[in-house]
């Protein structure tokens, strides 16, 4: 799930956030729900200026051929989208007045399968 080998050169400064690099949507949602709003806000601020850079950087590989060492970057960008909901809409980690997350099951889409089957 999380790579310990470090992030690619241009993204070294994001290494403190590697713990957020979950490979599945389910894992990312559950981590979001366990985090505090301070942690989420900190993560959101760190990633906001980097998501486009990450996308541009990863553009050089097709989805099913992203090297293992590069995947944490993708997962961190996907995790950013979870935290954006909290910061931009809900102002708390979970959805207020919502069906409890314990009543949801999340299954992988095609892209998630492609990324996680390769490399």
């Amino acid at each position: 799930m999380t790579m310990s080998s470090g992030l690619p050169e241009n993204f070294k400064h994001l290494e403190p956030y590697q713990g957020w690099a979950h490979s599945t949507e389910d894992g990312r949602m559950r981590q979001r729900l366990e985090a505090t709003m301070d942690e989420i806000t900190d993560y959101y601020r760190a990633l906001l200026p980097e998501v486009n850079n990450i996308a541009n950087h990863l553009q050089q590989w097709p989805l099913d051929a992203i090297p293992a060492a590069q995947k944490p970057l993708l997962f961190m960008a996907l995790m950013f989208m979870e935290t954006a909901m909290c910061v931009e809409f809900f102002h708390e980690p979970d959805v207020p007045e919502a069906l409890g997350a314990e009543h949801i099951e999340i299954y992988a889409g095609r892209a998630e399968q492609l990324v996680n089957q390769s490399g």
Partner: peptide, 8 residues
């Protein structure tokens, strides 16, 4: 999605 950007 053919690229990471589309997936993100």
């Amino acid at each position: 999605p053919t690229s990471a950007g589309a997936m993100i």
